[in-house]
């Protein structure tokens, strides 16, 4: 008796079956929220001048997409459709405020650095996009994975962009963290000192890289690379 019961449960809901893995991993490449769905561009341009705030932003957005998907999916049959957007926004705003309060209490410098962008997660189209497109019509566990997957897909692009921008814009990586690296710059604090190294005397940090517009170019190039490597993304029509 007990054996059959276990089997039945297993058959009904594998915790991380093929479908669940797809939900989690698809947004990292084939269905990336930034490069394929083209959502959440605004904050991807704004916070990616350095790696540290990008990582914090990625974690915060992943938390918000994951749990808002979970809560909305749990309530999906109870949310009246006339007020579903408002109900979704209340849940998103709740989670964002939780992130803000926790950062304020546990990591004040990063809170100061991200300042207004934490609050702006509320308006990040990825969050509401996933609620409307997925959580309103799917079970809680799958919705949660979909949220986490999309958060990670967003975060992955953020971090790639931030690494490029920080490296070429400031010559450093992970500045502000214990593993801060000073790679290339005009004085002896950097590994490659452009003022004394004969091979790199021509090199100067690119000021364009620290401006949001550089992120636009980098995201464009990422989309180009992704579509070259992954031809099924190319729109044939």
């Amino acid at each position: 008796m007990a054996d059959t019961a276990v089997k039945e449960v297993k058959k009904r809901e594998p915790l991380l079956g093929k479908k669940e893995r797809k939900l989690l991993l698809d947004p990292l490449n084939d269905n990336n929220p930034i490069t394929v769905q083209v959502l959440g561009i605004c904050s991807a341009l704004a916070v990616t001048s350095m790696v540290l705030p990008s990582v914090v932003m990625a974690v915060a957005v992943t938390f918000v997409t994951g749990f808002s998907n979970l809560f909305v999916s749990l309530l999906r049959r109870r949310i009246p459709k006339q007020v579903r957007m408002i109900a979704q926004l209340v849940i998103i705003a709740f989670l964002v405020t939780v992130v803000e309060l926790l950062l304020k209490a546990y990591n004040y410098p990063v809170y100061k650095q991200l300042s207004v962008y934490i609050g702006l997660i509320i308006t990040n189209c990825i969050v509401m996009g996933r609620l409307e497109a997925f959580a309103m019509a799917n079970k809680p566990w799958q919705s949660f994975l979909d949220g986490i997957g999309n958060g990670l897909g967003y975060g992955a692009i953020l971090i790639v962009v931030a690494v490029v921008r920080e490296l070429f814009g400031k010559g450093s990586l992970f500045a502000g963290t214990p593993i801060a690296l000073n790679i290339i710059g005009p004085n002896a604090d950097y590994w490659i000192d452009t003022s004394s190294n004969p091979w790199f005397s021509w090199y100067v940090n690119n000021n364009l890289m620290v401006l949001p517009i550089a992120a636009m170019f980098i995201i464009g190039i990422l989309i180009w690379i992704q579509r070259t490597v992954n031809p099924k993304l190319v729109d044939v029509s």
């Binding site: 009246p80 006339q82 109900a87 705003a93």
Partner: peptide, 22 residues
């Protein structure tokens, strides 16, 4: 869904959120 259900739902949702944030 009736108006009273919508009102009750909205009220409970916001009350729960407000309380936990406080």
């Amino acid at each position: 869904m009736s108006n009273s259900y919508i009102l009750t739902f909205t009220f409970i949702l916001t009350a729960v959120v407000a309380l936990s944030l406080t």
